Simulated scan of single mutants.
Amino acid sequence: MLTISTPGRICLFGEHQDYLGLPVIAAAISRRVQMTGQHRSDNKIIIHLPDIGSELQMEVFATRMPYREKRDYFRSGYNVLIDKGLKFSKGIECTVNGNIPINSGTSSSSALLVTWIHFLSKMADVPRHFTSQELGELAYIAEIVEFNEPGGMMDQLSTAIGNAVYLQFEPKVVVRELKPNLGTFVLADSREPKDTIGVLKRAKFARLELIQKIRQTLPSFSLHDFNTSGQEDLKKLLTNDEYALLGGTLRNRDILREALALFESGEMSNEKLGQLLIEHHGILRDLLQISTPKIEAMMSAALAAGALGGKINGSGGGGCMFVYAPHEPEKVADAMNAVGGRSYIIRIDRGTTVHIS
C-alpha cells in the first residue's frame, strides 16, 4: 500500500507580486492532502473522494487521455507523466482525504496535483524518482500549462518542496530553501467566497498597465532593480492613484527582502516578523483593496489576543488569512472564531512525502 501526503501553503511575503515577475516567500503548512492506494488486477483507475462524496473512474491509456471537463486535473496529471515517458499497464485504486481548506487560498488544488503526480510516479511500470522541485514543476504544467490558465509556480513548488522557500521566477527560476526557527501560526477561513476577478482587475491588470505606462518614458524601468530614491521623479508621469500603487508595489518588494535577510540571519526575531507581516497586509488592504471587513475584524481580534502580526492569504476578496502567534495560539484562534472565522493552529511543515506499507 502506497501513501503520499502533501501540505497546503501560505504566502508569507510577496503576495500579488509573483505575476509581476517579483519573488515570493511561501511556506508549507501542517494541513495536508493524503492519497493511499495500490494496483488493481484490471486496467481501471478508481479514485475515491469521500471528503466531497464523489468517485472518479478512468482507464489506463498508453497515450495521453482526452479531457472530459474544465480543469480535469487527474487526467492532466496522468498526461504530463505520459509525456515524460512513464508507462502504466495496471489499474490503480486509491482514496483521497485532506484537511486543507478548499477554495480559500491555501493551494488545495496544487497540493492534490502534487500528490497525484507523486503517487503515479511510484505506481508506473518502472517507478520514477522525481525531486521535490521536479514534482512541483510537473504539477505546474498539469494545472496551469495544460489548461492555458494564468498563474505562477508558487503554489506547486511550495507544496512540493515544503518548509519555507524563497522563489524567484525571473530571469530564471531560483529556489532557496529557508529554515527559519518559526513558532505557531493560526490560519483562519473567513468563509467568504473569493472575488478573484474583481481583485485581479486592480491588483494585477492595473499594475501591469502602470508598468507599461512608465516604460513609454523610461524603457529600462524594472521592478527588480528600480531604486526607490528615484520614485519621486515618476510622479509627474502618473496619477495619484497610480503613484500610490507603484509605491506599495516597491515597498512590498523591499519588505520581502527584509524578511529574507531576517530568515537567513540565524537570529530570528518574532516581533520583527510580525511587524513585516502587518506592513505587508496594510499595503494589500489599502492599496490593492483585497481585504474585507470580516477579515479585518478577524485580524483585529487576533492582534488584540496576542498575535504578533498577520496578513490576508491568497488572491483575497474573501478566503483565508493567517497570523503569527507563537504564544497562546489557542487564545488567538478563539478570538478569530468569535468574530465568525474558522481557525486552525498550524506549523510550518515538510513537503510531499511517501510511505509504503
Rank of each mutant, 00 (worst) to 15 (best):
267 E>L: 14
234 L>F: 02
243 Y>N: 05
317 G>T: 03
263 F>D: 04
222 S>Y: 04
227 N>R: 14
258 E>P: 09
321 M>R: 09
267 E>N: 15
291 S>A: 06
313 N>C: 13
317 G>Y: 08
231 Q>I: 15
238 L>V: 03
264 E>P: 07
296 E>Y: 09
221 F>D: 03
322 F>L: 03
282 G>W: 04
278 I>D: 15
262 L>E: 06
266 G>Q: 05
245 L>T: 08
310 G>Q: 05
308 L>N: 06
318 G>T: 02
219 P>L: 04
256 L>A: 02
312 I>G: 11
247 G>C: 09
293 P>N: 04
300 S>P: 12
247 G>Y: 01
319 G>I: 00
273 L>R: 05
223 L>N: 01
314 G>K: 00
266 G>E: 05
256 L>W: 04
271 E>Y: 11
301 A>I: 00
313 N>W: 03
303 L>K: 08
277 L>T: 01
298 M>K: 06
266 G>I: 00
243 Y>P: 00
232 E>R: 14
254 D>W: 09
255 I>H: 08
301 A>D: 03
231 Q>C: 13
305 A>D: 00
232 E>Y: 13
270 N>W: 10
279 E>P: 09
290 I>L: 10
275 Q>R: 15
271 E>S: 15
243 Y>E: 00
283 I>S: 07
292 T>H: 08
237 L>M: 10
277 L>A: 08
258 E>T: 13
272 K>I: 12
258 E>I: 12
264 E>C: 10
259 A>C: 05
285 R>G: 09
261 A>P: 08
266 G>L: 01
272 K>V: 15
269 S>T: 07
226 F>V: 00
261 A>T: 11
248 G>I: 08
284 L>M: 09
291 S>L: 06
284 L>R: 10
287 L>A: 14
286 D>H: 11
264 E>D: 11
315 S>G: 13
292 T>C: 04
217 T>E: 15
242 E>R: 06
224 H>P: 09
245 L>I: 11
255 I>Q: 07
230 G>I: 05
292 T>M: 09
319 G>Y: 06
252 N>G: 08
233 D>V: 12
226 F>Q: 03
276 L>E: 03
242 E>I: 00
318 G>R: 04
297 A>G: 09
290 I>M: 11
285 R>N: 15
303 L>T: 07
272 K>S: 13
223 L>E: 00
319 G>P: 04
306 G>I: 03
252 N>K: 12
238 L>A: 01
247 G>W: 02
236 K>A: 15
301 A>Y: 05
231 Q>E: 15
298 M>D: 02
319 G>F: 02
241 D>F: 12
235 K>P: 06
308 L>F: 07
273 L>C: 07
277 L>W: 02
273 L>P: 03
254 D>K: 08
281 H>M: 02
226 F>Y: 10
292 T>W: 07
294 K>P: 01
223 L>V: 00
269 S>W: 07
247 G>H: 04
288 L>W: 10
321 M>G: 11
293 P>Q: 05
321 M>K: 10
235 K>C: 07
261 A>E: 14
279 E>D: 10
319 G>T: 02
310 G>F: 03
236 K>E: 15
280 H>M: 09
318 G>I: 01
315 S>F: 10
260 L>I: 01
227 N>L: 15
252 N>T: 09
290 I>V: 13
314 G>S: 01
268 M>E: 06
242 E>L: 03
230 G>V: 08
306 G>L: 04
